[in-house]
């Protein structure tokens, strides 16, 4: 359990949020052109990093807005929080 600094609401308990998995997976521009391998990569394959990971979160029990987070999955420490569409912070 940890606190999350929602970019819209401020610091709230993690239980108010829903994790949305790995961030910056871009939906294919031409879905009809995709091979089965590329679909598998897009739909199922995940980095699942032990360490610093970029991910999406949704403040479901608050403002209900989506945002991005940089978090160390080995100790749950949050490195940065930024809005959708913003450039991910570099280190």
């Amino acid at each position: 359990m940890f606190l999350i600094n929602c970019p819209f609401c401020g610091e709230r308990e993690q239980s108010e949020f829903k994790a949305g998995g790995e961030a910056h997976i871009v939906r294919p521009k031409q879905p009809t052109e995709l091979s089965d391998d590329e679909w598998a990569e897009y739909l199922f394959m995940r980095k699942n990093i032990k360490g610093v990971q970029f991910e999406r979160w949704n403040h479901v029990h608050g403002c209900r807005k989506w945002f991005n987070m940089v978090r160390d999955t080995s100790n749950d420490q949050i490195k940065a929080v930024y809005k959708m569409g913003e450039k991910p912070p570099v280190e």
Binding site: M1, Q14, A19, G21, N48, E55, T73, D76
Partner: peptide
């Protein structure tokens, strides 16, 4: 399970 990826071997209280 918690719904976020974590390797911390501890879960949330809720």
């Amino acid at each position: 399970t918690d719904d976020y990826v974590s390797y911390s071997q501890k879960g949330s209280h809720d």
